[in-house]
Design a protein around this nucleic acid. Structure first.
Length: 284
DNA sequence: ACTGGATCCTGATCGC
DNA sequence: TGCGATCAGGATCCAG
C-alpha cells in the first residue's frame, strides 16, 4: 500500500524502533526484487552497525548507518513491519533485519516490484538522482509546475505522475487532485494556464496533506499486525467510483485508461475543450 | 527531448 | 470448482 502518505507513515512508524539500535543479523530469503539485492554489501555494512536515522525521499525509505544508507522502495505491494522473533513467516517475507532489541524489521513484497539497495556514503544512486521536488516542500510551486509544463504536451495526469516533475503523486492522488482542481485528466500539460496550475498545486498539497494525516491515524498500528487498507475510500471523490454519482454535481463518474493506468474524473466538473478531445480515428 | 507502450511479478476477482 | 482474462496504490526501459 505504498502511496506517499503510507510511505511517510511507515517511516514514522518504524523509525522509533530502529534509531540507535544495532543490527545483529540480516536474513535474505530472495535475491532479487525489482533489481538484484546487493546481499554481500548489505551484510558487510549492516551487521554490527548502529542505525542513526530513518528518513524518506519521494517513495524511498532511507535507513542510515555509519558507512551508508539502506534504500527501500515498496513498489506496488510492499510492506515494512516491526515484528518479533516469534512472528510466523508469511509468503513473500524477503528480508529481515534483526536488531539488538530483538525486534525485527521485516520486508514483505508479493509482486517484488519494490527495491532493496545499498548506497555507500559519498556515492549516488541513479534512482535518487533527477527526482523532482517534494510536493509539500516550498520548492514545489504553481509557477514551477507551469514552467516545467511548457515543453510537455502529454496529458496533465501523466505529467504530474512523472517523478522528474514532482515526486509522490501516485495514481490515486493524481485523479483526486485533478478533480479538486476541476481539470480534465487528458488536458495537455502545456495548454493549462498559470491560474489552473495554481488550483492544481493547491489541490495536490491539500489532498496529499490530508492523506498523510489520515494515513497517520489509520495506520497507527500498522506495525503490529495488519493495518487495513481501504481507509482512503471514505475520502476518495472519484477514484474507483466509476458510474457512481459525482459528489458535487451527481453526474456519473467516468473511467478511462491513461498511460495504462485507471483514471477517474467527472466529465461535468472537469470539462475538456473539444479541441483537445482525442478522435478515435487518430488512435487507430 | 518527449511520448506511449511493454515490462517486471503475484494475487484477487470476475465471467464462463 | 476450475480456468483464463483482466486488473492492481510503481517506475524503468526502449523504440519512434
Amino acid at each position: 500500500m505504498p502511496e506517499l502518505p503510507e510511505v511517510e507513515t511507515t517511516c514514522r512508524g518504524i523509525s522509533p524502533h530502529l534509531v540507535n539500535q544495532t543490527i545483529t543479523q540480516v536474513i535474505f530469503r530472495h535475491k532479487q526484487l525489482r533489481w538484484p539485492i546487493p546481499i554481500k554489501a548489505l551484510k558487510d555494512h549492516l551487521i554490527d552497525a548502529t542505525i542513526t536515522e530513518v528518513s524518506r525521499r519521494a517513495k524511498y525509505i532511507l535507513i542510515q548507518v555509519p558507512t551508508g544508507t539502506v534504500v527501500i522502495h515498496l513498489g506496488m505491494s510492499g510492506t515494512l513491519r516491526i515484528v518479533s522473533a516469534t512472528t510466523p513467516l508469511r509468503a513473500h517475507d524477503h528480508f529481515d533485519c534483526i536488531l539488538s532489541s530483538n525486534k525485527i524489521l521485516r520486508l514483505n513484497d508479493p509482486r517484488r516490484f519494490g527495491a532493496l539497495l545499498w548506497l555507500p556514503n559519498h556515492h549516488t544512486l541513479a534512482q535518487l538522482e533527477n527526482l523532482g521536488p517534494e510536493p509539500l516542500s516550498t520548492e514545489f510551486t504553481a509557477t514551477y509546475l507551469y514552467q516545467s509544463a511548457q515543453k510537455h504536451r502529454s496529458p496533465i495526469k501523466t505529467f504530474i505522475m512523472n517523478q522528474k516533475v514532482v515526486v509522490g503523486v501516485g495514481n490515486i492522488y493524481a485523479s483526486e487532485s485533478l478533480f479538486m482542481a476541476k481539470i480534465h485528466p487528458e488536458y495537455p500539460a502545456n495548454a493549462l494556464s498559470l491560474t489552473q496550475y495554481q488550483d492544481l498545486h493547491k489541490a495536490i498539497q491539500k489532498v496529499l496533506g490530508k492523506a498523510i494525516k489520515k494515513g497517520g491515524t489509520t495506520l497507527k498500528d500498522f506495525c503490529q499486525s495488519d493495518g487495513k487498507p481501504g481507509y482512503f475510500s471514505q475520502e476518495l471523490k472519484v477514484y474507483d467510483r466509476q458510474e457512481e454519482p459525482c459528489l458535487s454535481c451527481q453526474s456519473p463518474i467516468h473511467a478511462i485508461r491513461l498511460g495504462q493506468r485507471s483514471t477517474y474524473f467527472c466529465p461535468r466538473c472537469q470539462p475538456l475543450p473539444s479541441k483537445f478531445k482525442r478522435k478515435k480515428e487518430l488512435l487507430l
